[in-house]
Design a protein around this nucleic acid. Structure first.
Length: 267
DNA sequence: CAATGATCCTGTCCGC
DNA sequence: TGCGGACAGGATCATT
């Protein structure tokens, strides 16, 4: 469930906690969670953190000496900073051991999350085809018009496609479509220029607000120091019964996922 | 190329 | 009380 604002929040917290520190080791406790690029040096650690970036929902953590960690939380992944780690925790799938006997736990109930260790020149190979960052200038009305021109799928499904725009998930797509006044079932290529403009505007707006609120904590999202986000307090349709104007929210399944929308406000 | 459905996985919740 | 099933959902893969 972590989407762009949640991933950025976790990454910012990680950077604050471990910047200038040294990774002593990377341990995997669940098969497939940690993946090492073939042919890496015999011992990759100890090694110092160099930089912390986000691309879509991926965290890209560069290490000195041209290596990088690519971290994806998928649905239930969490990073938890721990100044005095002990035994393996419940659902702990991997652990980044730091110097001074500290650690960052990778907790992931549903085990879909991944940590990849690779050379910096291999980063692109380990990332899928990702569309523009929604907060960048590249994501504008003209881009969207071109990208959606042949998309007959519902606009909701198109916006969840990471190769079209990178970082949106179910919650923010539904929230931005409510704000834009567009029914999530509308055919993507059938939207007017005015509507595309509203999608761009409200995508940026809802993401900026969620970032300022440190993300949305539905179920169990936490930042790295276990703080909840606050944006759940500002949701207008996701898991709501009524929209802000008092209309009844409708729920439908789209591509296997729940879509919440207001049939009065969204056309 | 676009779209759909199955798959991965486990905790939680609902109905019987 | 307990159990089966639905559900949650991001990304990948296979299929149409």
């Amino acid at each position: 469930m972590p989407e762009l604002p949640e991933v950025q929040t976790v990454l910012d917290g990680l950077e604050a906690a471990v910047k200038d520190r040294i990774i002593a080791d990377l341990e995997g406790y669940y098969p497939g969670t940690v993946r090492l690029s073939p042919g890496l040096p015999q011992s990759c650690f100890p090694r110092r953190f160099a930089s912390f970036e986000r691309r879509g929902k991926y965290m890209i953590i560069r290490l000195e000496g041209d290596l990088a960690l690519i971290v994806h939380l998928r649905m239930t992944g969490k990073l938890v900073w721990d100044p005095s780690p002990g035994e393996i925790l419940p659902h702990e799938r991997a652990r980044i051991i730091l110097d001074a006997d500290q650690a960052v736990h990778f907790i992931d109930i549903r085990t879909f999350g991944k940590i990849i260790l690779c050379r910096t020149e291999e980063i692109a190979e380990y990332l899928p085809d990702l569309g523009p960052e929604p907060l960048s200038n590249e994501f504008d009305k003209a881009y969207l018009a071109t990208a959606l021109a042949k998309r007959k799928a519902p606009i909701k499904n198109a916006l969840l496609d990471q190769s079209l725009v990178a970082g949106l998930g179910n919650i923010y797509v539904l929230e931005l479509l409510y704000r834009a006044g567009i029914d999530p079932r509308r055919e993507a290529c059938g939207l007017s220029s005015l509507q595309l403009g509203r999608i761009v505007k409200h995508t940026k707006e809802v993401l900026a607000e969620a970032l300022a609120a440190n993300g949305t904590s539905v179920s169990d999202f936490r930042s790295i120091d276990d703080k909840t986000g606050e944006f759940q307090n500002f949701l207008r349709v996701y898991q709501k019964n009524e929209c802000p104007r008092g209309h009844k929210i409708e729920v439908v399944k789209q591509a296997g996922r729940s879509s919440f929308f207001c049939p009065v406000c969204q056309k």
